[in-house]
């Protein structure tokens, strides 16, 4: 198809200022349109590329939407059982102390079935990085209630809205983790606007630098959308996220250099 408004004089290799990193494998992502997983994957890979640590990085993927993360990230990876990624990562880091080790987990994986593994890896101060995508829903299985589902939020298993009396409270696991002494750095970010994406990348870079300096565990929550699960368009979902998720899950650093902010 003929492309209008192309500028051949600008469109030269030496003028490239942004391009998907080659550490993202060149295949279509399995995520829904507008999903924050793809963006977070790319930021993670940009950090690994910029630090030149592809050869020294071992990742652990979860069960959930990002179960296939190892098909997209051009690094060695292990697929964990549901919730167990921090256990795998703890062992890997202890057996390979000079490798960069991270887990990539969703809210069901990290804050429900894997709560014990998460809390204890954090509490031991494992020198790893945990990247936690919180979209308040089980995306992969079709939009069921997650530990982080907001009060009143409708999901496939809370069709009339999350009722606190019968279904319990949404879990602010990141706040809990920030209080554990083994954890060095805790932050909550987002990836729905360019500025948020850039901040998330900086947070990931900081986390990997902390790992390099063997200063303890770093924990990055990314509040993200699940437009399929929320039954909104991607742009509507991002707006809904700003209006509903961010007040309950406020963005920003919670702990820096082992000190609560």
């Amino acid at each position: 198809m003929e492309e209008l408004f192309a500028k051949p004089e600008i469109r030269k290799p030496e003028n490239i200022v942004y391009k998907k990193t080659n550490l993202m494998i060149d295949r279509p992502l399995s995520y829904c349109p507008g999903c924050g997983h793809g963006t977070t994957h790319r930021m993670l890979m940009e950090v690994i590329e910029e630090m030149g640590i592809q050869e020294n990085t071992i990742g652990v993927s979860p069960v959930g939407c990002s179960v296939l993360a190892y098909d997209f990230l051009d690094i060695d990876m292990l697929g964990a059982a549901h919730g167990r990624a921090p256990a795998l990562a703890s062992a890997i880091k202890r057996l390979w102390p000079n490798r960069f080790v991270f887990t990539y987990q969703g809210d069901g994986d990290l804050a429900a079935i894997g709560t014990a593994e998460t809390i204890h890896a954090c509490n031991r101060g494992e020198n790893i990085t945990i990247i936690f995508i919180n979209n308040g829903i089980y995306g992969m299985t079709g939009g069921q209630m997650a530990p982080t589902t907001l009060e009143g939020m409708r999901t496939a298993t809370s069709p009339y809205g999350r009722d606190i009396a019968t279904m319990g409270y949404p879990l602010k696991i990141t706040e809990l983790i920030a209080h554990l002494p083994g954890v060095n750095y805790v932050t909550r970010q987002a990836v729905h606007t360019p500025n948020h994406v850039r901040k998330t990348k900086k947070a990931i870079r900081k986390a990997f630098e902390i790992q390099k300096e063997k200063k303890g565990l770093s924990f990055i929550e990314v509040v993200s959308n699940c437009n399929s699960g929320w039954k909104l368009t991607p742009v509507q979902a991002n707006k809904w996220m700003e209006e509903n998720m961010f007040p309950f899950y406020p963005l920003g650093d919670m702990k820096i250099d082992g000190k609560l902010v």
């Binding site: 500028k7 600008i10 469109r11 030269k12 003028n15 490239i16 200022v17 942004y18 391009k19 998907k20 990193t21 993202m24 279509p28 992502l29 995520y31 349109p33 507008g34 999903c35 924050g36 997983h37 793809g38 963006t39 790319r42 990836v191 729905h192 606007t193 360019p194 994406v197 850039r198």
Partner: peptide
């Protein structure tokens, strides 16, 4: 390019 979830945009 930064915000595109699928990384499909190259910027010059």
């Amino acid at each position: 390019g930064t915000v595109c979830p699928d990384g499909v945009i190259t910027v010059y």
